[in-house]
Each structure stands twice: as structure tokens, then as C-alpha cells.
Design a protein around this nucleic acid. Sequence first.
DNA 1: TCAAAAGTGTTTCGCGTACACCCATGC
DNA 2: GCATGGGTGTACGCGAAACACTTTTGA
Lengths: 303, 303
Amino acid sequence: MNESKEFLKEYDDSKYKKPSATVDMIILTAVDVETKARSVPDKVLRVLLIKRKGDPLVVDITDPYKGKWALPGGFVNYYEDLDAAAIRELREETNISDVYMEQLYTWGKVYRDLRRRVISTSYMALVDSSKLNIKAGDDAEDACWFDVKITLLEEVKTQIKAGYIRKTTYELSLVNSENEIKDTVIVTKKLEGRTSKIDLEYVNNPSGLAFDHATIIFYALERLKNKVEYTDIAFSLMPEMFTLTELKKLYEVITGKVIYSRNFRDKMEKQKKMVIETDEWESGKPYKPARLFRFNPDWVEDQ
Amino acid sequence: MNESKEFLKEYDDSKYKKPSATVDMIILTAVDVETKARSVPDKVLRVLLIKRKGDPLVVDITDPYKGKWALPGGFVNYYEDLDAAAIRELREETNISDVYMEQLYTWGKVYRDLRRRVISTSYMALVDSSKLNIKAGDDAEDACWFDVKITLLEEVKTQIKAGYIRKTTYELSLVNSENEIKDTVIVTKKLEGRTSKIDLEYVNNPSGLAFDHATIIFYALERLKNKVEYTDIAFSLMPEMFTLTELKKLYEVITGKVIYSRNFRDKMEKQKKMVIETDEWESGKPYKPARLFRFNPDWVEDQ
DNA sequence: TCAAAAGTGTTTCGCGTACACCCATGC
DNA sequence: GCATGGGTGTACGCGAAACACTTTTGA
């Protein structure tokens, strides 16, 4: 039974064909977008993508994703911690360190990359856009920020014996002034008896992202959506000081829900005590100035 | 910036030293333990461990974990999906498939295994103990179930500039009739400004588990604890039919909290509608027979 | 004067928590 | 009869959701 463990002893580290280990970075930020004049701008999430070399129109069966946009990432060195590889990639792309970073999931389908066997661990990094704007696309590389949006397209539920199969189809759209990428992600939940299973699957779209990166971005946004409800993760995307309406706008774009400001204020300030008021005020806006708040470092989860 | 991606083109798959990819399985089940006669037994979680070959008393600096207990696991084959490797390992150990399984986390510190560089993805499998008892330790291998318990030892919070460091020390104890393993896991949460970071760290204990496996088991139990609150994950550990007190006992051992049965009943049956009553009844107990329930396959999360 | 947002008072309803009590069984 | 759990009635308080209203600013 335990042959594999014992096999280690004789295992020659260089003799057998091994998968390659890589990291993929989902680097997210939130920026303001003007909706109408004289109004508080909405927030939108952005993700950093890089353009792969090559001509997307030339068919190459060993590398069908040439010229397509992809998540930044790269190989894990033999003498480098997995986390360290992620931090290194982040710095290479954004010139920033010391931000919130979290490992998400490891993607290991055999044919996710047709050139060779790659097992890729994805990391999500959250960057305050006010600290950014320095680099990200300042060298020869095509690295660009894309506005992210997920739209529910369809949900089909089929009853089966002692359970059901539910297929939910989403469109992931990645847009900036020069590009428009649309990808389809299908979430399949199968419940049969007491064993349920969830599968993420992407539809290969000619105008889409490289590899399974649409799925990975979808997964990151889901994680962010879940965590924003019970952690302080959102503040990594905000500047040091902010108004409660700005914070509310961020929560709205992450959760995809409309929030009532009356209750949001009470929750943040009185109940959860996640924010502290400062003595500083917004100014220059064509409406009543708002007080600026900051994150309460003594906030503790649950309670 | 994107050299690594481009480097792929020239990259010879066999030329460079690569980390090895492995999977580690946290196979959990829940069994009854008699507390006092005439009472409903409590539940306890069990994890499957295997004993590594070798003499733990002989010092071997290239493999200090000889003869110690470890999580089952093994290498990922070049032409094998990561999930498939986990399923294969599960079958090899328990002879069971078709159970709840979930990827947890990927552990990639350089020196977590001193023999060679290993990046290991951990999977948690939940097995209904009534379906088990077939195999798990029936061949030459030393594979045994261990009762798992986590105890909070100490919590130290240190204030630092614009935040704090909180170190929480837990004891992970793994016990069966012949063995008693104690390991220490330290969770460090550092919050500074708006960037918080959580680290899991294990203390090398002479009577402890091999590698960083104490940390991995701790992580699995935390995941289980979180998920039990908002998913149907607990039912993977229960037989087809059960009384509500049995289910409550399982929730208690997973969450580590005492539950009031009055409210648990209402929540499961009326509010969340996770269970359906059957027409069958428990019997032979020295108290009023309880109705048997089963999982409601039409249950949907949230709502 | 007006649009837009800041900020506060208040109600309603459901859920989590809790106390109290009667019922049924085997020993 | 007693210990033990099965099962139900009910009350209290908080938090989520919602409605309503006053205040302050720049244009």
C-alpha cells in the first residue's frame, strides 16, 4: 500500500519525468469609474493580464494560446518556497510587495497546458490602487489592467436519482480601452445521495484567455466575494482613509449586490466596529462633505 | 518581466531540476465512543495514518522522519490529473471511492522534506464509517486510525505599531489503543496597517508526526469546522439514516462547541431544511425511541 | 433653488439563545 | 421509580432590512 513512500528511497530525483510547478498570479485592484457628473463614482475591480507572444491566428497545436492574454506567472525554482515564487512574480509585475496575498487553489489537469505537464498554484494579491499606477506595463511587455465583470447567463437544474445536477453558466468579461475579452465558465454541481461534487469548466473561446485562466479568475472572484463578508480583506483594496460610501461601493462591486447605506454604516461602525472615524473630512464635492474613516486595527473576526 | 513565460519555448522539460509533485490525503471519519452506559455515545473524528519504514531512533539527517507516522500520499504521475492522483491514493488506502473529497492547500516550503524538493497538495476525504471497516490496514502496511483532538494551549497577543501579532498555540493529539502522538501547531496572525498575514507553523516534536503533517491535519480540521456551518459536508460522515442527536454529536465534535438540542432540531428541520424525517425509528435504547432522519437532497445552501 | 449625498431616528421581522415542561423507554 | 434522552411550547434580545426625514454642500 505504501510503496510510493518507500519508493522514495531509491527514487532518483532526475531520472523520471516530472510535472513542472508554476504559480499564477491574480492581481486585483479596485478603481473609481465615473458614472454621472456630480455623483460619487462607482468602483470596479481590475485584474492584471499579460499578452503572450506569437500570432493567435497561426494554428499551433502544441501551443494554441499564442498571442492571447494570460495571467502573469512562472516557474517555481528548485530552491524557492512556493510562497516566495508568488511574491517574486508579484514584484516582477507590479513592482510592489507587502500587499495582501493568499493562495487559492492548485490546478493540475494533465492537458491544461499542451506544451508540457504543468501543475499551477494560483495566488490572489489585492493592491490598493492609490499605491499603484507606478508600474504595471512600463516596460516592453504588454501588461494591462482589465475591468472584470461576471454575468450570470443561465442556470439549468436536472433532477436525477437521489439528487440533481445543476449547471450554471457565467460570462467573464475583461475589458479595457483597447481590448475586450469574453469567456464562458460553467459551474457544475452534482449531488447524488450524500456525495456532492463541484466542477469548474471553461469553454474554449476564440477571443478568450489563454489556458484555464478564465476559470482561475472566476475562482478568485468567488473567494473574494465569500471572504469579504467575514474578514477585513476589503480594506486591502482601499486607501488608508475613505468615506463610508466609497467603502460601500467596493462591497457592492465585490458582492454584486445593492447595499442599503443606512444599515451598512451601522454595521461597519457600531456593530462590527471595523472602521474608526477620523477628524478629517472630504471636500470639494457638490454635496455635503463626508467624514473620513480608517480601518480599526483592533477589529477581530467573529464577535 | 515576462521572461519566464517566453523561456518556456526553449525550456527542455528534462534538463532542469524540478520539484516533485505529490498529494497528501487527510482521510477522516467519525465513529461513536461510549461515554457512560445508558447514554447516547459521543462522536469522535478519526484520521488515517501510515507508519514510515525505518528506525526513528537512528539519526539520519537526510531523513529525520524515519519510523514516524505520516499522512498517506504519493507522487503525481506525469500523465495523471492532480485530482486523479488523490483519488488513486484514497482507493489504495481505504479501498473506497465515491466519497466526498476536496482539495485543501498546497504546501511548498523548500525544506519540508529534506530528501528532495517536494511540493505537496493536500486533499481531505470524508468517509462514512459504516461503509468503512472493510480495509484500512489489512495488508502488510502499518495503516491505523487515530482519534483526533485539538486543544488550545495558549494565546499571546502583542501590540505593535498600527496592529498586533497574535500567536495561538494548539496541541494536536492523535491517539489509538497502541499509539499516542502529540504535536504542537502555532498559528501566527500578524496585522500591520491593512495587511494581515496568517502563518501556520509546527514545532518539531520527537514523538510527533513526520514532515509538516501536523500542520496539514490542523488545517484540514479548521476547514471542516468552517464548512460544516454553511454546507452539507457533515452528512458525508454520517450513515444514510440517523437520529438528530447523533447528528448533533457530530456537529459538536467538529465545531468544538456545545449545542442546545432544542434549537438544533428547529434549525435542521424547520429553518435550513437540511433533513427529512423518515418513518423509521431507533429501538432498543433505554429511553424514548428517536425518529430517524435522512439528508434532504433538495437542500440548497444559503436561503 | 436644486441635485446629491451625509447622516440619524425608528419599526418590523426572523433567528439565535435560552428556560421549562411532558413523554416514552429499559433497567 | 428513575435515569436518559425525545420532543414541543414559548419568551427575550439582537441584528438585518426597510422607511422616513433633516442637513449640508457646490453648481
